[in-house]
Computed example of a mutant assay.
Amino acid sequence: MDSPHGAAVTAEDFGLKGPRGWAFRGVRLDAPPGALIAIEGPSGSGRTCLLLALTGRMRASEGRAEVGGLRLPRQMAAVRRISALGPVPGVSELDPAFTVAEHLRERALLQRRYDGSLRALLRPRTERTAAARNRIDAALDAAGLDPADLPKAERTSVRDLERLEALRLSVALALIGRPRVLAVDDTDLKLSDAERAEAWELLRSVADSGTTVLAVCSQAPVGAITVRTATTATSATSGTADITEEDAADVSEPAEAPEATTEKTTDETTDEGTADAFAETGRA
Rank of each mutant, 00 (worst) to 15 (best):
S3R: 15
E272I: 05
T269S: 04
S170T: 12
A38K: 03
A108C: 13
G63C: 11
L110K: 10
M1K: 02
L52K: 01
G282T: 04
R228E: 00
R64M: 10
R163W: 11
A31Q: 09
V9I: 15
A194R: 13
A78T: 04
G68C: 11
L118Y: 00
R119G: 02
A236C: 14
T10H: 08
V251F: 14
L203V: 10
A194V: 15
I243W: 11
E272M: 07
A194K: 07
R119S: 10
T270P: 00
D137V: 13
S117G: 11
T237N: 10
A230K: 00
E272N: 03
A65H: 03
G177T: 10
R168K: 12
E245H: 06
S209I: 05
S61N: 05
L169N: 05
A78Y: 06
S43V: 10
K152I: 07
F24L: 04
G177A: 15
T156G: 14
T261Q: 13
G210T: 06
S61M: 05
D276C: 00
T240E: 12
L122Y: 08
A279T: 13
G21E: 01
P258R: 09
G239E: 02
A78D: 11
S235L: 03
L182F: 11
L167H: 14
V79S: 03
L214C: 12
D149P: 02
R180M: 13
T129M: 06
E66A: 13
G56Q: 03
R119I: 08
R47A: 00
G26M: 05
A11D: 08
L70T: 08
R119C: 02
G21V: 02
A143F: 14
E245G: 03
L175S: 05
R80V: 06
L214A: 09
R107A: 03
A275K: 12
S192K: 11
T129V: 13
A255M: 04
